[in-house]
């Protein structure tokens, strides 16, 4: 009798441990990573370095907010990197018209590409992977052609301040990232749009029957992705004080990695904004830490790959 009871207790403990892992594994993992880095590098915990990390993750973080919506809806947006470069270029090309116009033009160009993606996905009934892969190539081509392959320098002082100035001790672009992630969280978990995003990712047929306007929601999702990519492009361009036509390469994969580490399922229906935030931070801390420790560049890639796999494994424990 006693033995049976003991066993029961043990089983319950086990279950609650895996429960705990799936719920908080990401945060625990982040804390462990953070502590390990702090021990290994004496400069890791300095204010300058922590702000550096936040500044370095801002661009990927903003893209990842859009990507979170796409992935939860069981879609994906591969064109974000290309759109980022395009929007940066648009901003630099219109900088003569004043900062506000240049900023709006850049954001609008991202919104436009996102909207086009959404239209092809919904009205054309083509899978998001294929549509955004095609638009990635297309936008890249247009950007290269318009720029002639050369980077173009940003000279508008107001726009330059966006990437280099501080609000108190915090860089402006970190503030922008913080606002974006908070708005993203509200949008995803507190509004109908967010709820419908989960619904579509869980079951499109049930969503249709429940009266959800699927096409409209999807178009909005990809437009949001485009807008976030454009905002990231604006920030990157002002940080680098130039727009390079190839600046966006690889950002789509970084964003997908961050969202996946954050616990979202590429099959749709699952994911959280807080998860994405930690996914972005984990990638940022690893990259920062490995450079601080001057780890050999080949080994860096190996370590990054392993950490992504481990993070996703922990997140998928159910």
């Amino acid at each position: 009798m006693n033995v049976v009871k003991m066993n029961n207790v043990e089983i319950q403990k086990k279950i609650s441990f895996t429960d705990f892992l799936s719920k908080y594994g990401l945060i625990v993992g982040f804390i462990i990573l953070f502590v390990v880095m702090a021990f290994l590098s004496p400069v890791f915990l300095t204010k300058v370095n922590l702000i550096n990390i936040l500044r370095q993750v801002a661009v990927n973080g903003i893209i990842s907010v859009g990507m979170t919506f796409a992935i939860i809806s069981a879609g994906i947006d591969l064109s974000v990197g290309a759109v980022l470069a395009f929007s940066g270029l648009i901003m630099v090309m219109t900088q003569g018209q004043g900062a506000v116009v240049a900023l709006l033009a850049a954001l609008l160009s991202g919104v436009l590409w996102g909207f086009v993606n959404g239209m092809f996905i919904t009205k054309g009934k083509v899978q998001p992977f294929v549509v955004t892969m095609a638009s990635m190539t297309l936008v890249q081509g247009v950007t290269l052609m318009v720029s002639g392959g050369h980077p173009i320098t940003l000279k508008n002082p107001t726009l330059l301040r966006l990437g280099s100035d501080y609000l108190g001790p915090i860089p402006i672009l970190v503030v922008v990232f913080a606002i974006v992630i908070i708005l993203g969280w509200v949008l995803l978990s507190k509004t109908s749009f967010g709820r419908y995003t989960y619904a579509i990712g869980t079951s499109e047929s049930a969503s249709k029957l429940a009266g959800i306007k699927i096409d409209r929601i999807k178009i909005l999702i990809y437009t949001l992705c485009g807008a976030m990519a454009a905002l990231a492009g604006v920030i990157l361009t002002s940080r680098l004080s130039s727009a390079s036509p190839i600046a966006g390469a690889g950002y789509e994969l970084d964003a997908i990695a961050a969202v996946a580490i954050g616990g979202a399922s590429l099959a749709g229906g699952e994911g959280k904004m807080v998860g994405t935030l930690f996914g972005v931070l984990i990638v940022g801390v690893i990259t920062n830490g490995l450079v601080l420790l001057d780890v050999n560049v080949y080994i860096q890639q190996i370590i990054k790959g392993i950490i992504i796999l481990v993070a996703v494994l922990i997140g998928n424990r159910k």
Binding site: S192, A199, T202, S203, S205, A210, G211
Partner: peptide, 29 residues
């Protein structure tokens, strides 16, 4: 199972799905 329900979602999410405005205050759920 396929058309009527969001199987992996909680009961409360399923029940409110077609009438989200009834659980909103000031635009937020």
């Amino acid at each position: 199972k396929d058309m009527g329900l969001f199987l992996n979602m909680p009961i409360q999410t399923n029940v409110s799905m077609s009438n989200l405005k009834s659980i909103r205050r000031g635009g937020l759920m």
